[in-house]
């Protein structure tokens, strides 16, 4: 089980541009969108980290950007890490798919595409999961459904 310091050293070797926000509940890493696939492969295949289990893959709409959030666990060491990719292009968000690294990512990515409209490069079957094709992207903050109004 590695601590934050050891994890960040390993990650910085793989992706020098990675940043580590302070004061978070779990160890967090923010990486540029173009590095996510390489980092995912690295973290899974590195013997010290062995992040072989993708707990969840989701996104958050911060209105200024879209952030894709990956929660990873290792079935061997049971340490957790959170990867984040900030997508500044809210109109046409695009990030590499990690479904080649973790099979479960294929379906989590489909869910994110369905609810946020974030597209994933090289995804084997990127189509909507829950909703109809012409429905909007409901988890975006600017989404407004005239029939079932949910206002905060």
């Amino acid at each position: 089980m590695l601590n934050k310091q050891e994890l960040s050293e390993i990650i910085l070797k793989m992706v020098p541009e990675a940043t580590f926000p302070e004061g978070t509940q779990l160890t967090e890493v923010i990486v540029p969108a173009e590095n996510i696939l390489a980092l995912a492969e690295g973290l899974k295949n590195n013997k010290e980290t062995a992040f072989d289990y993708l707990i969840s893959l989701t996104a958050v709409d911060f209105t200024t950007n879209m952030t894709v959030v990956y929660h990873l666990d290792s079935t061997q060491f049971r340490h957790l890490i959170v990867l984040k990719v900030v997508l500044n292009d809210r109109e046409n968000p695009l990030v590499d798919s990690v479904s080649s690294v973790w099979a479960t990512a294929e379906f989590h990515e489909r869910e994110v595409f369905d609810l946020f409209g974030i597209r994933f490069n090289n995804h084997p079957n990127l189509k909507r999961l829950f909703l109809e094709d012409d429905y909007g992207f409901p988890l975006r903050k600017d989404f407004r459904d005239e029939i079932n109004i949910i206002e905060r």
């Binding site: 289990y53 973790w102 099979a103 479960t104």
Partner: peptide
């Protein structure tokens, strides 16, 4: 076991 891990 590998499949179980890969598919979460």
């Amino acid at each position: 076991r590998e499949k179980a891990i890969a598919y979460g």
